[in-house]
Design a protein around this nucleic acid. Structure first.
Length: 116
DNA sequence: TATCTGACTTTGG
DNA sequence: CCCAAAGCCAGAT
């Protein structure tokens, strides 16, 4: 058995699956842990390609800015925010001048970004 | 084998 | 402050 080579996508799933509850990681963070600090774009692509619903907490993966994926998320960013709140993830309100994608609410990376 | 695309990220206007 | 473009890597066709 020598061929144990997993595709980058499989590796991404493995990393995302290790994200503890109540913590979030950015695409770049997952990409780095997967062994490709420059393929942040591919992280999202991998999750979209085969996200094994219920097994891979793709809702814990957010943008570098703390905002969520617009439109392509599993049912909408509103759903993602609700799931994260259920896990105890802290959110930051739109300070009044923060544009942001989803609802203006962003994940508090300063407090809830996952640390390997 | 080559070409294109994409759930990102960073820098510039 | 907001919008746009470029760079990046790995998979799909």
């Amino acid at each position: 058995m020598g061929a144990m080579e997993q595709t980058f996508s499989q590796r991404v799933y493995d990393v995302v699956r290790r994200i503890p509850k109540g913590r979030v990681a950015t695409y770049g963070q997952v990409a780095a842990l997967a062994g490709a600090p420059r393929s942040a774009r591919f992280v999202g692509f991998a999750l979209h390609a085969n996200p094994e619903p219920g097994v891979i907490p793709c809702h814990r993966v957010v943008f570098r800015d703390g905002s969520l994926a617009p439109g392509f998320a599993f049912g909408g960013p509103d759903r993602q925010r609700e799931l994260l709140e259920e896990e105890g993830v802290a959110f930051v309100p739109p300070t009044g001048n923060a544009p942001c994608g989803a609802d203006g609410w962003k994940v508090d990376l300063d407090r809830c970004q996952w640390r390997a």
